[in-house]
Design a protein around this nucleic acid. Structure first.
Ligand SMILES: [Mn+2]
Ligand SMILES: [Mn+2]
Ligand SMILES: [Mn+2]
Ligand SMILES: [Mn+2]
Lengths: 231, 231
DNA sequence: TTTATATTTTAGTCTAATCTAAAATATATT
DNA sequence: AATATATTTTAGATTAGACTAAAATATAAA
């Protein structure tokens, strides 16, 4: 009985703790290493006071280094937990799209639940079943068993010069609104594009899609699509 | 904001509520319709006082009819929720065995977690992906979208007369100990057996497995294996 | 450098789910 | 029928996680 309690407190994290760690991880990747209380609160749709409580708890568990008013930084241990959750989230998203034929804008909510299923055997076998994918349906890299992942250059359409050719590799904004917009104008990961014109006045861009159709995208769109340049 | 709260309180059940409802359902199938506080407590490894609290809550939600000292009975609404959880549990078990190559004694714990993933779209697509299976890896029937399932005759090896031939169709005890024992003596679902001798003094039975090997099984084993008779 | 605003923390409540110990009720035994 | 035992319920406490309101601190503006 004693044993079980000790084991749980050492190895298990609650659903909620995992969500906080993942939120801190995602914020620290997008913004700076140090993550503010408010940004975590916003990301998790909770209140700053709740975040403060949790930061104390995670600091006790050595998952973050935290000092009053200084924001939080993941420790190596915290990062490991966060990356494990991210790995699960992204593998499940691949499963949902590749095996169950969900669309890329339908999988996030479900993966938010599946990412907390606790079984390394399960996730390793799922990874194998899926053929060890390296990217999820939104182009985000999938950490392997050891937490390593491809980190391709994060180049946006907005960064491309006129005349350049590139392939769509990921989305920065993965809200279903944006994903549905992309689908409706015929943009998907793997799509080849060429920058025809950049209009300075509103930073909109006209692009050639798959060598055929010409469309115009707003700055908001070009700032949220990652590409890989093609020679 | 109001709306969301109302919706959640009407349609969503907590992980814990689902576990209680499933426990009551499983107990009422195995024993009697009316389920005692203590049996629920034992099944869920919790205390009777906790069960009493939850019965009040589930009675409020109209999932059980409950009167002090009288045990609990699932209402139609409660049964619907319970069967939905059972459906998810069993479909995930099929997935784990058929697609991820888990053994039948390894899947229960993981399915205990997966059964709480909340998405009917997900479970319906999973069911389709698996080819609409009717039984789980332990021979238990899988409820369909509407809660209907095959209920084959629950005949045990212990019920068979000498000389009868039958096919293994399910396990009553699905503990991993028992499942591993079965595997080690070459008994699996679908295995054809023939009752050679019934020894009255200890109720052990000698059976012919797949027309080849003869083995002897104890009463405890013959009382825990469901079969379908073959003419 | 003072003042105003924004951010973060603290203090105190709340709810769900659990527990222990004690009281109430039901069932079994003499 | 009276007594003993087992089951169930109540009362009261605890924990995780969340919230509100108020206090403390940091940052920006004047
Ligand atoms: Mn996602
Ligand atoms: Mn994704
Ligand atoms: Mn099971
Ligand atoms: Mn099963």
């Amino acid at each position: 009985m004693e044993y079980i309690c000790i084991v749980i407190s050492l190895f298990m994290n609650t659903y909620t703790e995992e969500n906080y760690l993942k939120a801190i991880y995602n914020l620290s990747v997008k913004e700076s290493e140090e993550v503010s209380t408010n940004s975590i609160a916003e990301k998790l749709s909770t209140k700053a006071s709740s975040v403060t409580d949790m930061m104390k708890k995670l600091a006790d568990k050595k998952y973050v280094s935290y000092q009053k008013y200084q924001g939080a930084v993941l420790t190596t241990a915290g990062q490991k937990v966060a990356i494990e959750v991210v790995r699960k989230h992204r593998l499940w998203e691949v499963f949902l799209v590749e095996k169950l034929n969900f669309k890329w804008d339908e999988v996030h909510e479900i993966a938010e639940q599946l990412e907390h299923i606790n079984s390394s055997e399960l996730i390793n076998r799922l990874e194998e079943f899926l053929g060890f994918p390296e990217f999820d349906p939104h182009g985000d890299p999938i950490p392997d068993k050891n937490g390593n992942m491809k980190n391709y250059k994060k180049l946006l359409i907005a960064d491309l010069k006129q005349g350049k050719t590139a392939v769509l590799a990921g989305v920065k904004d993965s809200s279903s609104h944006f994903l549905q917009y992309l689908e409706s104008v015929g943009l998907a990961l793997g799509t080849k594009i060429r920058v025809l014109n950049i209009f300075e006045f509103d930073k909109s861009v006209s692009i050639l899609v798959n060598g055929k159709k010409e469309i115009s995208i707003s700055n908001q769109v070009s700032e949220n699509l990652y590409v890989m340049e093609v020679k």
